[in-house]
Design a protein around this nucleic acid. Sequence first.
DNA 1: CGGGATCCGGATGGATACTG
DNA 2: CAGTATCCATCCGGATCCCG
Lengths: 137, 137
Amino acid sequence: MGREISSNDKCDMSLCPVNKAMEYLSKKWSIEIIRDMFFGKTRFSQFKEDKPKLSNKVLSDCLKHLESKGIIKKRIISDTPTVTEYYLTERGKSLNKVIYELAVFTIDCNDNEEYLDESARMERKKEFREILDIDIE
Amino acid sequence: MGREISSNDKCDMSLCPVNKAMEYLSKKWSIEIIRDMFFGKTRFSQFKEDKPKLSNKVLSDCLKHLESKGIIKKRIISDTPTVTEYYLTERGKSLNKVIYELAVFTIDCNDNEEYLDESARMERKKEFREILDIDIE
DNA sequence: CGGGATCCGGATGGATACTG
DNA sequence: CAGTATCCATCCGGATCCCG
């Protein structure tokens, strides 16, 4: 650990930026939907793929919440039939590193489906950096 | 965006490492409790400070869940009175960059309580890197 | 007194059916 | 296709109690 807490540190965590971030992301499906958007998904029905337990109601609520927070933007393509697309705003795109570190956490812990050796893990991370548009530092 | 999705990409997101990470962190208070631990908190009552809406039951459930996932470890210090301390495991500590990027997201979006100029934001991030034990890269 | 467990009402989530 | 309406299940939050 970097340092210990001391009694005269001001430790009012209610102002911590991590809390603020969680206001945006604490809804159960938010992160996965944002991840989907980085992977190129834009449509209501696409977000439901691979998420059998995500209902219309909850997805609808979640999209509205993310839109109200300025993370995503809705664009109506056609009325009949209804075609709507959702995009990440610049602010939404700035979540790329959060998504990346979540992926890296799992990849490095090797609690993925299959075992990955060091070079495979590196490759997997590189794939994510490309998709998430993260520069190698 | 780094690249677009194509129809013959295999896009089964159910295996995505981000999903796996969310199994650990999706509970409403998990991230904030882990953040608290990085800040040096170890006790049941400390986790409740600054979280007036966190009930005993939910905190208790959350700590058990994190322990079952290998993120934290419980240590009994004394029986009478009962004194218990909770610590991050190595695996838990490897969440430091996730926490960091959540903080950076808020700091850079300037949706913090107060407005921060560039140098103040840098300073704030540095504080987090020290607490989270992240090397400047 | 600290670390819980229990109980219960309200909020949130999930499955299905239906509509513009 | 993208939602809404409805109904039920599950989870959360607040109060209270328990136990060493």
